[in-house]
Design a protein around this nucleic acid. Structure first.
Lengths: 128, 128, 128, 128
DNA sequence: GTGGTCTAGACCACG
DNA sequence: GTGGTCTAGACCACA
């Protein structure tokens, strides 16, 4: 399904969270779609089920998925309200990263291109 | 010199690294300028010297500073050629962050504004 | 008859228990009134009969209903004497919840208003 | 420090969360006060450290405490902003519980008494 | 010594 | 079969 870097400094469960967040944001996984079961995924990736569960738990508390005992874990519907804080946070992160990128020689045009591409990915799956 | 958030979830040494990176990027600290000594800084900020040292080591391995035994640590000159990998890395991070931002409702125009502002900050110190 | 939230984190059978408790408390269901049969309800709500049965078992052990083999389940009459423990339990829960509410900024007057409203709901069906 | 019911239906870590929440709300534990270390508490209560950590992690994501690697876990300062949703949630819970209490024979006066007592507990530690 | 991550393996609750 | 909890025990990152 996707790759993990076991040598990375950031923990496996965090990488899982990021991957799933991306998949949900890109609408590859759609609202109410079922995620692979904890055990199945654990087996596929040869990872301990507890680690998967930790990732799922985190995703749940972030509002990206919901889990039901005995049934599975599912993509949560987006709630548009009150993303205010999230937006402020992400803008701050973006600012810092952009500044570093410019410093390294990335041009404004390069970044705009990244935006275009992201925008495209985001909307291509829109109506499906 | 600058502030640290001792309550933050990310480690102190990491905050130090980020602050110094920012100062170097903004040219507040200029090429070959001497950084405060480990001891001095540790005393000023009432922080464990080991923590400072770890930050300096990290900055050195990132190529932002160089250290000379018995003399101190200094801001490294930018080497444009070796940025290839750094640029690829940061572009990947940017892509992901931009996608998430767009998802949350930040507009392309918002991001371009962030770029402008970063650009401004970056060049305002240019000729000093 | 009523709605269930299949996405909720608390189990379906528990939601059923709560709904029935509410209906009995509000006297929508009156003493000795017959509850829908397990099969019927299961079919109506497209839910596993085992789940209904578990809810009924729970309601029975809580003293809200009684079941007669081959006849069905019925709303139990209130027995004032046996409430001692239940009252102690619920007072403890209330205390904790009230404390948390006050902490969050809910006022005494707010809570009294909630009591009034609950009281009203409770007695509006009284004489029917 | 406090008691746990190992037989209870709700998990140990949840009981821990509730206990600490109460202690923080009652100001028994004050802002920036250090909580017992994961290992220490685990040993004292003869509970697995992982379980304690799970409780602390939950408390952190709820905003009641913050944890710093290598230093410990501490009571977080209260942020008054945007408790709106929390208040709505708790009012709903209160309504339901009050209705059930009234049904069981608890009087309005009884509940008001509980409020008084909670209010007293809450403010007695205020200025310390 | 502190919190954080991960594994292995057991048992429970739910549907 | 599903998620959830708990234990035991190991190793890492931080200050």
């Amino acid at each position: 399904m996707f790759e993990l870097d076991l040598r990375s400094r950031d923990p496996i469960y965090q990488q899982l969270v990021d991957k799933f967040k991306a998949l949900i944001i890109k609408k590859v996984l759609q609202t109410d779609e079922k995620l692979p079961s904890v055990r199945t995924l654990a087996q596929q990736m040869t990872i301990n089920p507890n680690t998967i569960q930790k990732a799922y738990r985190e995703l749940e508390s972030l509002g990206f998925i919901y889990s039901i005992k005995g049934k599975g874990s599912f993509v949560a519907p987006m709630v548009e309200e009150e993303n205010g804080e999230a937006i402020r946070t992400i803008k701050a992160s973006l600012s810092q990263l952009i500044q570093e990128a410019l410093f390294l020689g990335v041009t404004k045009q390069d970044i705009i291109e990244l935006i275009e591409r992201a925008n495209h990915h985001l909307h291509s799956k829109e109506g499906e």
